[in-house]
Amino acid sequence: MSETAPTATRSTRGRPRDAGRDRAILDAARTVIAERGFTGASMDAIAQTAGVGKDTLYRRWSSKVQLVRHLLTVLADEGIPSRPPDPDPRFGLFIFLQDLVRLNTRSDFGAVVAGVIGESARNPQLADVFHSFWAERRRSSADLVRDVVGPEASADDIDRHVDQIVGPVYYRLLLSGDEITDEYLWDLVATLPWPDDPDRT
């Protein structure tokens, strides 16, 4: 049965939305989806855990897919904070990778992502939404990689370098379960070409 409530509408009138209630719903969604996976997490269960009516959820998000999309963005923004540029862009990229590992291993983000990836193979709508989320996060990685390799690198080069840096991290997080140490992360960063620029010494 679909989780979408087609009769629900988003009201632009009346009282402003309660930010505290929004947060309670997101926290409930994080907990329920991390425990049960995307498929097992119903909007009913999320509403019950948050202590709100299901209509309250649908006034904010038209479907469970859209709720998960928002949840992933919030968790990623909180887990990987914006930082001022480091004088050594390689170190800035290294810190980003540390934040990425912490986000996946010390919060429910990793469990939510794993559940979404598993269901995406059977749910094209969820797959499209997740790919959109991933494309946004990838741009952040690409900016950091470009800071390292220099402005002359082509878009194709940057894409390849992002795969080269981030891909092994998620391989260990989602597939092999091998340890991810700081030494491992720095070794990944060190594989990127470092332009011969005296200002970078």
Rank of each mutant, 00 (worst) to 15 (best):
L97T: 08
A5G: 04
T9S: 14
D99R: 12
R59G: 15
A111F: 11
Y58C: 01
L173Y: 03
G14E: 00
T201P: 00
S63I: 02
S132I: 10
E35H: 12
L75E: 13
D156K: 13
T4I: 10
H161G: 00
D108Y: 12
Q125N: 09
A5D: 14
E152H: 14
V101Y: 02
F94I: 04
A127Y: 10
R15H: 11
F109S: 01
G53V: 12
A5P: 00
S132F: 09
Q66Y: 11
R138T: 07
F91P: 00
V149L: 04
Y58I: 00
W194M: 12
I117V: 15
S141R: 11
Q48G: 05
Y170T: 06
A153S: 13
D22Y: 13
P195Q: 09
L75V: 02
L100P: 00
D86M: 13
S107H: 01
L93N: 05
K54S: 14
A127F: 14
A121G: 08
D187P: 00
V148S: 05
A114N: 04
R137A: 14
I95L: 15
R21I: 14
N123H: 12
H70V: 14
V149C: 01
S141Q: 08
G37I: 03
G118Y: 01
S120R: 10
R90Q: 09
T4G: 03
V65K: 08
P168S: 03
P16G: 03
T73G: 12
R10N: 08
T31M: 06
A45Y: 02
P168D: 04
I33A: 09
L144Y: 11
I180S: 02
G118C: 06
T49H: 13
D99F: 10
A114S: 12
P195S: 06
S2E: 09
H161Y: 15
R137D: 07
V112G: 06
S120N: 05
V113M: 08
Q164R: 13
